[in-house]
């Protein structure tokens, strides 16, 4: 758990972060979102003391971070940044092995861990372990960056716009990857981004920041439904808020479930159980349908999604 109480950070006359309070529960992903200069990166960097805070209290699992040994504090926090921050003179394997090595793991254990992480992030260890960062594509390098942050199995993950420099398709792949890993590992995560869609997608809770203050700290659903101020409303967009809301829920949560799964009719237009309501809506619009069968990975039809139901849920 990470608790910030009345935390401020001043650079000379400028107050970058102004008396913010924020609690990130254990296992929760908190996304700090806002435009550049709003203080979100500063907030993140105060948590691992890359920047000391000027006032207030920051506690990690109940302990004041100023009382913890600096290196110990950082070694227990995975850290990933924009543009990867990979060391160009080290191979992929050595980059990932950094924190375990600093913690004094045995060699065999480090090697096993590197292999495990490369596998987990979909990079074949045989092919990638000995490559240098310059030989990787942007997406691959960022995967390595994430692997490095996870290497020593830290309790906390700090991610500073890690996918900011990637193209849209690669970014979406990595977001999916992130969701998959997070479902499995449940790390307490603070994630900084300026992209509201990324925030809505990844967050358990979003903290919207502007001019060094937190304007609203709530679930994605609540941020969309009840924006606390005009700024938050403009950030989430007033026109396509319905679509964003629909993107948050999966079809499986809303469909009318059949008493028994049945064999799906192969040629019939359908929607996957894990797809979002937004995708289902798009299919309905395109195909001019008022209801869609919902199928799972094995091709079994689990239920149906009707337009009325979808309307009600996204209202």
């Amino acid at each position: 758990m990470i608790e910030l109480t009345n935390v401020s950070r001043r650079f000379g006359e400028v107050t970058a972060v102004d008396r913010i309070s924020l609690t990130v529960e254990t296992g929760e992903t908190c996304v700090l979102v806002g435009s550049s200069g709003c203080g979100k990166s500063t907030t993140l960097r105060m948590i691992n003391r890359l920047l000391p805070h000027s006032a207030g209290d920051i506690r990690v699992d109940g302990q004041d971070i100023r009382e913890v040994d600096l290196q110990q504090l950082r070694l227990n926090m995975g850290y990933a940044i924009q543009g990867t921050g990979l060391f160009p003179h080290w191979t992929v394997a050595r980059n990932i092995a950094l924190v375990p090595q600093l913690q004094g793991w045995e060699r065999a254990r480090v090697e096993a861990r590197v292999t495990e992480l490369l596998d987990m992030l979909g990079l074949s260890p045989a092919e990638y372990a000995d490559k240098y960062p310059a030989q990787l594509s942007g997406g691959q390098a960022q995967r390595v960056g994430v692997a490095r942050a996870l290497a020593a199995d830290p309790n906390i993950l700090l991610m500073d716009e890690p996918f900011g420099a990637l193209d849209a398709i690669t970014r979406e792949n990595l977001q999916n990857e992130m969701l998959r890993i997070q479902r499995r590992l449940r790390k307490t995560t603070v994630f900084v981004t300026h992209d509201i869609d990324e925030a809505l997608r990844l967050a358990d809770r979003i903290a919207v920041m502007d001019q060094g203050r937190i304007l609203q700290h709530d679930t994605p659903d609540a941020i969309l439904r009840q924006p606390a101020s005009a700024f938050v409303e403009s950030l989430v967009g007033s026109q396509d808020r319905g679509l964003k809301l629909a993107a948050l829920q999966s079809v499986a949560e809303v469909m009318q479930r059949h008493p028994q799964p049945r064999q799906a009719v192969p040629e019939k237009v359908s929607v996957g159980a894990q797809d979002s309501l937004r995708q289902a809506l798009s299919v309905m619009l395109w195909q001019q349908l008022s209801e869609l069968p919902v199928v799972d990975d094995q091709g079994l039809e689990l239920g149906v999604l009707t337009r009325e139901r979808l309307w009600r849920e996204t209202a």
């Binding site: 691992n48 890359l50 290196q71 950082r74 070694l75 940044i81 060391f87 950094l98 924190v99 600093l102």
Partner: peptide, 8 residues
């Protein structure tokens, strides 16, 4: 900074 943040 990444090196420092990583715990070096």
């Amino acid at each position: 900074e990444a090196a420092e943040g990583m715990g070096m």
